[in-house]
């Protein structure tokens, strides 16, 4: 009960910080918009290519934004030794992780839902009659991504060269998330193939479940002295 309260306070703290500084929001929205634009140029005005690549571009943009978001979220904790002080208090280390995870997930999922119609419009892809599924895929996909990103961002926060190290460590782990999310949303947008989307969504949810347990269990070894 107390632990749950601690989780919510940490999440609330992160969201409050973000609401005031808007550091993550500004950076991720701008960055993902640029990514979508650059990739649109890369597809070279080929409408077919654009349509099929829409969801791929969306998840590439989300992935890069997710790295920024996770790294930024720990940055505030490192300033002025706030995290250091916090870890001296008798609260479970996992609460810190889960709290930050919730805040990050919320921000990423919101960004994903925001980007859906933008990517659709920009790439000339009709989101289709089952667009509601896309929200579910974004929610499950960003959870998997945030699970790994927040975990590794916390791990690298105390290491030298953390900015360059974070993507190196986390991207090989999140490959299945990105593949599954791209395929699932592509199945909806391209062909309205709910069965195929469901198969990929199951992989996403399985990943989420396994990593929710693994990361929450292991987090204390990451921050404990």
């Amino acid at each position: 009960m107390n632990d749950l309260r601690a989780v919510l306070w940490i999440a609330r703290k992160d969201l409050l910080q973000e609401a005031r500084s808007k550091a993550v929001t500004v950076a991720t929205v701008f960055f993902s918009a640029v990514t979508l634009g650059v990739l649109a140029f890369a597809f070279g005005q080929n409408p077919d290519l654009m349509r099929t690549g829409a969801m791929g571009a969306l998840w590439v943009a989300l992935a890069f934004a997710g790295v920024i978001s996770a790294a930024q979220s720990w940055q505030a904790d490192l300033e002025d030794g706030a995290l250091e002080a916090l870890l001296g208090w008798p609260l479970p280390r996992a609460a810190v992780y889960v709290g930050k995870l919730l805040a990050n997930w919320l921000l990423m999922a919101a960004l994903g839902v925001l980007l859906l119609p933008i990517a659709g419009g920009l790439y000339g892809a009709d989101l289709g009659p089952s667009a509601g599924w896309l929200v579910g895929i974004v929610v499950a996909g960003t959870l998997g991504f945030a699970l790994i990103a927040v975990f590794y961002a916390g791990l690298t926060a105390n290491l030298r060269a953390r900015e360059s190290l974070l993507p190196v460590l986390m991207f090989p782990v999140v490959v299945p998330i990105l593949l599954a999310a791209v395929r699932a949303s592509g199945a909806i947008v391209g062909s309205d193939d709910l069965e195929l989307a469901a198969a990929w969504l199951r992989l996403l949810v399985g990943f989420d479940l396994v990593y929710a347990v693994v990361c929450t269990t292991l987090f204390r070894f990451v921050v404990e002295a």
Binding site: W9, K13, S21, A76
Partner: peptide, 23 residues
């Protein structure tokens, strides 16, 4: 030796957070 508080929160909010996290 450092402050150990969150810059984006007020002094009051920092104290409330610390109290809640200390249970």
């Amino acid at each position: 030796v450092f402050g150990g508080a969150y810059g984006a929160l007020s002094g009051r909010e920092n104290l409330r957070l610390a109290a809640a996290l200390r249970g």
